[in-house]
């Protein structure tokens, strides 16, 4: 545990060095969120009846998405791990007195957290000051907020478990490119990064909701604003937890197999 804490500290300090990068990131994400909301407001004006959620709920959705980009975006991958696998020095990871899966997992959590901590608060703060309905509104209740936190933690780990599968697949293919391309193409649309999932056609949405991608950010954002509430929340959370456990176990087993292969054939 101490090793993980030390690692987190180093990452965080390193992150602080790049203040200009952080400021730039905040401004970019803020502008991105702002333009997205303006775009949706044009659609709202065109046909309010076709809007699948309250406009203020959408605004909160977009701001949370922009502020927590580093936490939930599946394409934020750790190049060090790819380099490690490609250069063939994976075998050295076996020498360390750490569980490889856990180590990579925590490393990714730290990487994302250290990046998000600096960037999320300014965005959330300014977004909360914006006039209704364009700003970030308070969660729909204390209950909803607690459920949001719980679901967000599950999402965070689910995203990292998914990234782990991308890393592990690279052990077999040796080149990260194809896997990355496939993973990126699948996740960008299905997680709701391009347009929020409620805007999908109903039939498509019914299927997407069952995939792990819908649990990677869409669910907590909708819990926050009360778009999903009451008795609907628990089954969704259960599905989310199910995907997390499944991806986690799958990743562990697959990595163990991959490492055996490395140990026998050499990296």
């Amino acid at each position: 545990m101490k090793a993980y804490r030390a690692f987190f500290r180093i990452r965080f300090t390193a992150g602080l060095q790049y203040r200009a990068a952080a400021v730039a990131g905040i401004m970019t994400q803020f502008a991105w969120g702002f333009l997205s909301i303006l775009l949706f407001s044009a659609f709202y004006k065109a046909n309010p009846a076709a809007f699948p959620m309250e406009f203020s709920q959408l605004a909160s959705y977009i701001w949370l998405q922009q502020a927590l980009l580093a936490i939930f975006m599946p394409w934020y991958l750790d190049n060090e791990i790819f380099a490690l696998i490609q250069s063939g020095s994976l075998a050295y990871e076996l020498v360390r007195p750490l569980d490889v899966y856990n180590f990579w997992f925590v490393k990714n959590l730290a990487l994302r957290l250290s990046r998000a901590v600096l960037r999320s608060f300014p965005i959330l703060f300014v977004a909360a000051l914006l006039p209704a309905p364009y700003g970030l509104t308070a969660p729909s209740g204390i209950n909803a907020f607690l459920l949001f936190l719980g679901s967000a933690v599950l999402s965070f780990m689910l995203v990292v478990s998914f990234c782990m599968l991308v890393y592990i697949a690279t052990i077999y293919t040796m080149s990260p490119l194809g896997i990355r391309v496939a993973a990126l193409a699948a996740t960008e649309l299905l997680t709701g990064s391009i347009i929020p999932l409620p805007f999908f056609p109903d039939k498509v949405l019914a299927i997407v909701r069952l995939t792990p991608f819908a649990a990677m950010q869409d669910l907590p954002f909708r819990i926050y604003s009360g778009h999903v509430a009451g008795s609907e929340v628990w089954p969704a959370l259960a599905l989310q937890a199910f995907w997390l456990v499944l991806l986690f176990l799958l990743g562990r087993a697959w990595l163990a197999k991959g490492l055996r292969k490395v140990a026998i054939q050499g990296g």
């Binding site: 065109a46 805007f199 056609p201």
Partner: peptide, 10 residues
């Protein structure tokens, strides 16, 4: 998806 839902924008 957006355009089929809303038919037109602006």
């Amino acid at each position: 998806f957006m355009m089929t839902r809303f038919n037109a924008v602006n």
